[in-house]
């Protein structure tokens, strides 16, 4: 009896010290998420008649979504942004860096510090630096580089807006990919490589037949987590292009922001937000299951 009252008291105390965190998460994350779903069924707006007297409109916002070319455009842009920067750009450069930095090279620390640097830059600073890199005219850094190779310079953010935000987001995330993939590489026992070498495998065979297959679980987890965090990117794109020109870089988080705070359509913005929440949650659940958390 004594023991069980003691355990009950401890259990109560543990719940008590967790409760402030629980309260904040409920108030500022869970409740807003649920509230988003509610808002998406109303015609809430920041201005106009609907602002004073919001009504329940059923699925009207969602049926409007289906016919909204700008919404489909933003889904497509988000998809290309995620595939281009997280799945291809960051992954390829991160994997190359991770593999090369496992070797015994001089300046290893210096290289890895430099690769980590973009990750530390706040979103607005990163956007600002790249506006300088990508500006129009012959003096911008990228224009000078392409002119060195005999190509024609252009106003990069106007001519290739989506490609450019993919490049910038790749730049910002190489470090995350490198760190995760380094951790994955270090779990492959060196005996496996030695055995392969004994059997006369060449480096590219070793990479394709051993490194890649054994890395698959890590790669899958990386892909899921980086896809989810790339869908959430806002400040970087906002600072660079604010979704423009003409919606070319209007990723879903920018579209939600523009609908809510520029067009003041809160109900409709919430419907778009719910779509983003659902996509992220599906990827998140896949991530949690793939990672087989033992909690």
């Amino acid at each position: 009896m004594v023991r069980s009252t003691y355990e009950k008291r401890v259990a109560r105390q543990l719940l008590l010290i967790l409760s402030p965190s629980l309260l904040l998460l409920l108030a500022f994350v869970i409740y807003p998420a649920v509230y988003s779903v509610y808002l998406s069924f109303t015609n809430e707006a920041l201005t106009g008649a609907a602002a004073l007297n919001p009504r329940f409109v059923g699925l009207r916002n969602y049926s409007r979504l289906l016919h909204d070319a700008k919404f489909w455009n933003s889904l497509l842009v988000t998809f290309l942004f995620v595939v281009g920067s997280a799945i291809i750009g960051q992954f390829v450069l991160g994997l190359i860096s991770a593999i090369l930095l496992r070797r015994d090279l001089a300046f290893k620390q210096l290289f890895s510090s430099i690769i980590l640097l973009p990750n530390a830059a706040p979103e607005v600073v990163a956007g600002f630096m790249w506006i300088s890199m990508l500006a129009g005219g012959e003096n911008a850094t990228l224009s000078r580089i392409v002119m060195f190779f005999g190509m024609t310079p252009t106003d990069w953010l106007q001519t290739f807006p989506l490609t450019m935000i993919i490049v910038v987001n790749t730049w910002r995330g190489i470090a995350t990919a490198m760190i995760l993939l380094t951790a994955g590489l270090s779990t492959i026992p060196s005996e496996v490589y030695e055995a392969a070498r004994m059997d006369g495998a060449n480096p590219s065979q070793i990479f394709r037949r051993i490194t890649l297959p054994l890395m698959m679980p890590t790669i899958l987890l990386y892909m899921l987590i980086s896809a989810v965090s790339t869908i959430a990117v806002f400040g970087l794109v906002y600072a660079l292009t604010r979704g423009g020109p003409g919606g070319a870089t209007e990723v879903i988080s920018i579209y939600i922001y523009n609908q809510s705070f520029t067009a003041f359509q809160l109900g409709y913005g919430a419907a778009v937000a719910v779509v983003a929440l659902v996509i992220s949650l599906i990827l998140g659940i896949a991530y949690v299951r793939a990672m087989k958390v033992q909690v």
């Binding site: 879903i252 809160l266 937000a273 719910v274 659940i285």
Partner: peptide, 21 residues
């Protein structure tokens, strides 16, 4: 599980209701 899933929610999707609250 909930805190793992909360990490994946995009903040932009939460700001309008958050603002109202």
């Amino acid at each position: 599980y909930a805190i793992l899933l909360i990490r994946v929610l995009p903040p932009t999707a939460l700001v309008v209701p958050l603002y109202k609250i």
